[in-house]
Design a protein around this nucleic acid. Structure first.
Length: 210
DNA sequence: TCGCGTAGAGTTATTGGGCA
DNA sequence: TGCCCAATAACTCTACGCGA
């Protein structure tokens, strides 16, 4: 659980929905989506006005022509026709693709990077700037699948995989098994048994992991 | 060539100020 | 008072490069 204190706010940009990134110094656009109750990231930009435009487009999709935007609505007349034909998610992805941030990465898959030797390296990030190395692959897709499998094992249904989650039923089962065993291992009974020198409730699993 | 460490950047989650 | 939104901390991903 994160506990933070935010200092007194002062707007970093003259544009609505635009903020300056603390570390990179680049401009980012965000919008609050009432339907989901969540803030949506719209991408990182070199120019403040480009970020403002990204916000405007998303605001027009969310709130229609009544939205409070940074520029004149006439600027988006052509875009408005297109905006109505797609979902908010699609719009957000399209906007992000146009941001500089989306261009990072030599692979089109998450968790996959190109090694200097031309092969594809898969690795998965862990809290505390740690990473799990998953291996080198000749095919980009292979590396992406390796990443997906590892991610599903770690996060289950919450994993943001490259391919459909239905491809990873085995890993999902393993994840649920781990969750269940974790609950057992953390239970009061298990703790008191462990304190008394009793063997763990899930010995088979422990042996497997060693 | 492989495996890994690390810095820097992108993304998400959370907090709290401000306004209706 | 509650919601919207800006700010920012934390997390995650990727590029780069180095040693085995």
């Amino acid at each position: 659980e994160k506990k933070k204190k935010a200092p007194a706010r002062s707007r970093s940009s003259r544009f609505r929905g635009v903020t300056k990134h603390r570390r990179s110094g680049r401009w980012e656009a965000h919008i609050w989506v009432r339907e989901t109750g969540k803030q949506v990231y719209l991408g990182g930009y070199e120019r403040e006005d480009h970020a403002a435009e990204a916000f405007d487009v998303a605001a027009l999709k969310c709130k229609g022509s009544k939205a409070k935007i940074n520029f004149e609505i006439q600027k988006y007349e052509e875009l408005l026709k297109y905006i109505h034909t797609i979902t908010l998610d699609e719009l957000v992805m399209a906007v992000r693709r146009q941001s500089q941030g989306f261009a990072r990465g030599s692979s089109k898959f998450r968790g996959v990077t190109r090694h200097p030797n031309g092969r594809w390296e898969a690795r998965i990030g862990m809290p505390g700037s740690k990473h799990i190395y998953l291996g080198l692959f000749n095919e980009e897709q292979e590396a992406a699948r390796a990443y997906d499998r590892a991610l599903v094992k770690l996060r289950g249904g919450q994993a943001a995989t490259n391919f459909s989650l239905s491809n990873y039923n085995e890993q999902l089962k393993e994840y649920h098994l781990d969750q269940h065993q974790g609950i057992l291992a953390n239970s009061t009974a298990a703790k008191s048994a462990a304190a008394a020198g009793a063997p763990p409730l899930v010995e088979g699993r422990r042996r497997q992991s060693q």
